[in-house]
Simulated assay, not measured.
Amino acid sequence: MTDERAPGLVLHSPGGTRFHFDPGALCLELLPTGGPGPYARYEVLHRPADLAGWAGESRLGLPPGAVRITAGQLTAVRTLRDALWRLAAARAAHGAATGDAGDPADYAVLNRAAARPPLAPQIAPDGTAAPPLPGDGDQLASTVARDAIALFTGPWADRVRECGADNCRLLFVDTSRPGRRRWCSMERCGNRHKVRALRARREQHEE
């Protein structure tokens, strides 16, 4: 169901800088499209075509026309995304600790979406993954929700992190072997931290 590109998304900072962001899971790739509360100003899923475009840019790598999406299904996916934002943020703040991992209402949204059939995977004659059969927005939501359930109940449940930069709230799952990933992207927040640290050392040396 995936293509051969490096996993992750190309995002744009408020200043217009492009950077690669791999959150480590399909469900977390949906979060930068907008979200609840203060994240609503970043909304990009205005039309069904916008969601179809995200499905192509995500690690699903779906070709145009692979998913038929209605206006109602788009609304349902946005509701799912907002619930995922809150659940993932709770995991980042509290780990997988019982009682601190999110609102039951958000889990109910997740479970309802996952209860529907997901996109059906396909295999090409050469043995490689092929695009799924044409599906709909409910199947896309189910695929994302099932990925989230696998993340939240799996071995990486306590590795959901928030970027370490003060002004960045992007969430990712740290799948690195040492478990020390701090930044959403070294291209953006990691490099900015290095520049600030270097500047601070130089200023200290000049005093």
Rank of each mutant, 00 (worst) to 15 (best):
T2D: 12
A92L: 09
A145T: 08
P48L: 04
W54S: 11
D106A: 11
C189R: 08
R182F: 07
R81F: 04
H205E: 15
A124F: 06
P117T: 05
G8E: 09
A40Y: 00
C189Y: 11
G154V: 05
G8I: 09
I149N: 09
G37F: 00
L28H: 01
D22Q: 06
D138T: 15
P104F: 10
P125H: 05
R196V: 10
D100L: 15
A96H: 02
D3L: 03
A101Y: 06
K194W: 05
Q73C: 07
R91H: 15
V173A: 08
L198N: 09
S176R: 15
A113I: 08
T2M: 07
A165Y: 06
A148V: 08
R112Y: 00
W183Y: 13
H205D: 13
D138S: 15
P117V: 11
L133N: 13
I149Q: 10
G37V: 01
R169A: 15
A157C: 14
R18K: 06
R177Y: 14
A197E: 09
N167W: 08
P134G: 04
L84E: 02
P63H: 06
W85V: 14
G65A: 00
L28C: 02
L31E: 06
E162H: 11
P134S: 12
D136Y: 03
L28A: 02
L133C: 11
E187C: 01
T143W: 08
P117M: 10
H46N: 05
G127A: 08
P7N: 04
V77P: 01
A93G: 07
D3M: 03
A71S: 07
G16P: 09
T2Y: 12
R159M: 03
D103Y: 07
R180W: 12
A145C: 07
D100R: 15
L11R: 11
V67I: 15
F19S: 02
T17Y: 13
T175F: 04
V67F: 12
A129W: 13
G95I: 04
P23I: 09
R78A: 05
R169F: 03
A66S: 14
L74I: 12
L60H: 03
G154D: 03
T70W: 05
A93D: 11
P178V: 03
A105R: 12
E57I: 00
R112S: 12
G56P: 02
D82R: 02
A89L: 14
P63A: 08
L9I: 04
C189K: 09
A108K: 01
M186N: 10
D166S: 14
I123F: 06
G154Q: 04
A88H: 08
S176E: 14
A114S: 11
A197D: 10
E203A: 13
E4S: 11
L30P: 00
D3N: 14
R78P: 00
L151Y: 12
R202V: 03
V195K: 00
D50Q: 04
C163L: 07
L51P: 09
P23Y: 01
Y107K: 01
R41C: 05
T79V: 15
N191H: 13
F21A: 07
A83T: 04
F19I: 03
E57R: 15
P14T: 08
P36L: 07
P131A: 14
L110Q: 06
G34V: 12
G61I: 05
T75W: 05
A6M: 10
D22E: 06
V195W: 01
N191V: 02
